[in-house]
């Protein structure tokens, strides 16, 4: 049994990286390994926006990640700096920045790059999807 963390920088609507990461995560769990943390960085953070409304006949990546995280108790960590730049905020950041509402899906959590470093140190493997 091994411990994995993932770094995802892929834009959810420009290429396939988020889907690949999702399938890889499922395969890791099916093989009986552990996912320590999934860290979303750069354009990858866009998937954490709860206001994303993809067409009904397309895979909803935000909901797919959220479902997997809840079912399998996985940490979905979003880089706060990358997220704020792209309008992805939680209640505290919305208030701090005088915004009308939060926009992050509740399955995701804002945090710093230190969480990526910690995940790398605490995992056997880090796999990047961009």
């Amino acid at each position: 049994m091994a411990t994995f963390s993932l770094l995802i920088t892929a834009n959810p609507y420009s290429n396939q990286g988020q889907y690949s990461a999702l399938e890889f995560t499922k395969a890791v769990l099916e093989a009986g390994h552990i996912i320590k943390r999934i860290f979303f960085y750069a354009d990858g953070v866009l998937v954490a926006n709860r206001l994303n409304c993809p067409p009904a006949d397309e895979l909803n990546l935000t909901k797919s990640w959220a479902k997997l995280a809840i079912e399998k108790d996985i940490e979905l960590t979003v880089c706060v700096t990358a997220a704020l730049k792209r309008g992805i905020v939680n209640q505290a950041e919305a208030e701090r920045n005088a915004l009308t509402s939060e926009s992050i899906d509740p399955a995701f959590e804002l945090s710093g790059l230190g969480q990526l470093t910690e995940a790398m140190l605490a995992s056997d493997r880090l796999v990047t999807f961009g």
């Binding site: 091994a2 994995f4 920088t9 399938e23 890889f24 499922k26 395969a27 890791v28 099916e30 093989a31 390994h33 056997d124 493997r125 880090l126 796999v127 990047t128 999807f129 961009g130």
Partner: peptide, 20 residues
Amino acid sequence: INYGKFVELTLAFDKSVTWL
């Protein structure tokens, strides 16, 4: 290979580098 073998490969090597 399938995704299951993809996972095995990442463990068979010391590290993976995603060439972006």
